[in-house]
Design a protein around this nucleic acid. Sequence first.
DNA 1: CTGAAAGCGCTAACAA
DNA 2: TTGTTAGCGCTTTCAG
Lengths: 345, 345
Amino acid sequence: MATIKRVAEAAGVSTATVSRVLANGPHVRPEVRARVLAAVEALDYRPNLVARSLRSQRSSTIGLIVSDIRNPFFTAISRAVEDAAYEAGYTVLLCNTDENPEKEAIYLQLMRDANVAGVIFSPTRQTSVMLTTMKFNFPIVIIDRSVPDAPMDSVLLDNFEAAYQLTRHLIDQGYRRIAGIFGVMSTTGRERRRGFEEALRESDIPLIPELVCFVPARPEDGKEATMRLLAQTPRPEALLASNALLAEGALAAIRQSGLAIPDDIALASFDETPWTALVEPPLTLIAQPTHDIGATATDLLLKRLDDPKRSIRRVILKGSLMARGSTTPISDRPKPNARARTAPR
Amino acid sequence: MATIKRVAEAAGVSTATVSRVLANGPHVRPEVRARVLAAVEALDYRPNLVARSLRSQRSSTIGLIVSDIRNPFFTAISRAVEDAAYEAGYTVLLCNTDENPEKEAIYLQLMRDANVAGVIFSPTRQTSVMLTTMKFNFPIVIIDRSVPDAPMDSVLLDNFEAAYQLTRHLIDQGYRRIAGIFGVMSTTGRERRRGFEEALRESDIPLIPELVCFVPARPEDGKEATMRLLAQTPRPEALLASNALLAEGALAAIRQSGLAIPDDIALASFDETPWTALVEPPLTLIAQPTHDIGATATDLLLKRLDDPKRSIRRVILKGSLMARGSTTPISDRPKPNARARTAPR
DNA sequence: CTGAAAGCGCTAACAA
DNA sequence: TTGTTAGCGCTTTCAG
């Protein structure tokens, strides 16, 4: 394992000069530069990043703190972040918090200890309120969640609008008794609920509290909540799931109950995943530009690293409604007593 | 940002003593220990991991190098690795290689530069053969792939057996003309092909080269390969996909072709994912103990860190066959001209 | 344009 | 039991 010292010896220069050459620094005679480069080559020298980081108090690692990498939304984002980081010569430290504020705190600490260059973070509501009061020695970019007055860059979906649009779609299709399952730990769930309610209100559809659930964003919880919703009488005509994990649970519950989609109950969700187009019927949903979110977040972080005093940016991306088979218009459905009225095909 | 020096001053001891206390070292008077701990508390001191790593030449980061985090198999493994690492006080550096040997080399280099404690790695065939000749200053645990004579721990599925069992299942269900799509870059694909062929041979079913494809393990490629297979006459009766990404593509292709599963073509795959039980019909597959694989790999790595000269271990796990609707017996199928002979339900 | 020297914050001999 | 000291490998003033 060659060190800078050995390279310096081999090239007949000081370590300072080697360092300069490696940093592409100015004030080095081309001839000397060539000699150093040759020595680097010959010894297969690679700078020790740990030493570099200790000395320069900077590093080429960025932290990515998400609640669960198994959530397809975060999986896609991680991939995008990793790709963008790689391009820029950075590596990614990945952490899962399970939406657990304690783990969030621990990992944030760890980021400090590990001297990361910066962090991309998707905090729980609980942590977001702390975030403004805490001091970090690295920049943070918030993704997916909103942290109102935080002095940090963020990139997120227009959740209110997206949920409004999705709910509106359900209403337009003729559904009235619409249930919603939202993630309880995130601001995202709240915002989507607001969009959901706004659409209902606008159409003078009464809000039925029993039809709105806030649960942890996990398939089990989504399933359980759906089971409870399905047990109500009258049964909801449609169900909106606030993310892919909840939708997964909802679908499992509907299947287990032997109900047909959309005839017995329509289903709409957030997040395009590998399976949403493969199930029968394919799911109507709001697709988030996950790759874009990850790439943008990384870009914001790197830009801020470059210029710590640039103005704070908040990037809001739009989701796109993918209307598919799980929410076909109510009137098109061959109802037992309406079949005669419905044109064939 | 308190340093060990300040803590030492505050506690009225030397930095060495602080270090000892922090390392839970022996030979420290309880009274002094208490004083140090108090100072640590008071100053909210946290050791700088970078400095620690530089000095001790060890670190608490483990590298995880997979081909694509979006592959549900690797997603699940990453999660398990991260959990186990967290438990043990380690963090995870995540890297995607896209089965690209160049990227594999770069990341392996990077691991060296970053001074990681160890690496969990799923190499391409191409890299695996190099692996034995390369020297690393950290232990590597191989997952998913096999590296025959490598002096390193590994944990993988009994791929031959699993593929044999899955193919055997198809044969038992009455299928004869069986196609297979395998990943081209991994040893895993090869081994599964061998199990596949062995099962066919054993049943005296002729091997038809046109029915075996090796493609990159991506949905697009799986779809394309399936399209080609479906275009053949006679069409295959069943299709075996060697992993979840290929199965995703295969399913998309079958859907797009307007074919029914299993009536027109049966489908069997590897890897339990969120969607395999949600599609209609649910997919028959070999479920891999992903969490177990990740946890075991991490365990092997930590154990080796603890004792570098312990004997090399190769952990082989068994997959479990989940027989479901996508491969129901051929004779049970209500065929147009057989319906009369088939007992209802 | 180049080198000497001073650390970054920590650990680990070695002394005391 | 504790302190002194010498670095880990690198970057970065400051001189020359």
